[in-house]
Design a protein around this nucleic acid. Structure first.
Lengths: 138, 138
DNA sequence: TTCTACTTGCAAGTAATTTGCATCTATGTT
DNA sequence: AACATAGATGCAAATTACTTGCAAGTAGAA
């Protein structure tokens, strides 16, 4: 937690209780979660915490690269810690989420960008899989 | 346009002017577009057309597999014809969209699903690239 | 031509996220 | 340790994309 405070200050942000608690939730949760889930979790720890604060922090932490927004075809945004790049397989029935890493994806990106006429620089990419988990595909 | 009408009827849907016009827009437009864009385009052709009709048709055409929803990190949904599976590279500055196909992606999906403990059946996937196009990366 | 299920337009409703503003508080500086 | 201030927060209201209810319209089978 020491490093986080300094990191935040370096970026011109204050290490407020709300912000530290939010980061902490993500440190302890390895699945993408929504603003509402963060809020429910925080309410028990910080009296008077407001959803707006969650939204604002998720947004700023994401643009600083501490969090990352994940697109899993929900009608709300999901976030996770922006550490060790990985992707997800999501069960469209029960919402189980499995993470995976794959270095082939990087090679693929390189191949694709080389072939492109209009692009030469990739900033980010999405690669998410949707299916049925074993329990739900019976 | 003949086949479309029969296809719709077969699925229990009527070939209404609005629905045919919407499909036509997608036939003539090879980039993902939003409900609002479809609406703007249609207003000039069908007097009295309502956005609600667009939304309802985009939704039903998508669940029938005629259209497909595309996730390009916008705050609105984008749709395109659900023909020849492909992916996109999007310029985060000017929104230029380039399409590409890549058969390696299929192999990758197979490899990944084989390694998974919890999943064995893939229904769909997203693979989209975000970067700067040559014009915007100067 | 008639019947009926599917469609549409319009108005009102949702739900997630954002914004305005007054108040508050970490943090660098005395 | 007290101060000043840029950045944070809470609350309420606003935004935006999209959905729903309902009465009236229409395509398509018989």
């Amino acid at each position: 937690m020491q490093g986080i405070k300094e990191l935040l200050n370096k970026k011109g942000h204050k290490a407020t209780p709300a912000r530290l608690a939010i980061i902490n939730i993500f440190k302890n949760n390895k699945k993408p979660i929504s603003a509402e889930e963060v809020y429910k979790n925080l309410k028990t720890k910080l009296k008077n915490i407001n959803v707006t604060t969650i939204y604002r922090n998720l947004s700023s932490l994401s643009s600083e690269g501490i969090l990352r927004k994940v697109d899993l075809k929900k009608d709300f945004d999901l976030f996770e810690l922006n550490e060790d790049h990985h992707h997800h397989i999501v069960c469209t029935d029960c919402n189980k989420i499995e993470s995976f890493k794959n270095k082939e994806v990087e090679n693929l990106l390189n191949t694709i960008i080389k072939k492109s006429n209009n692009f030469k620089q990739i900033k980010e990419h999405s690669f998410e899989i949707f299916g049925l988990c074993k329990a739900c595909s019976k």
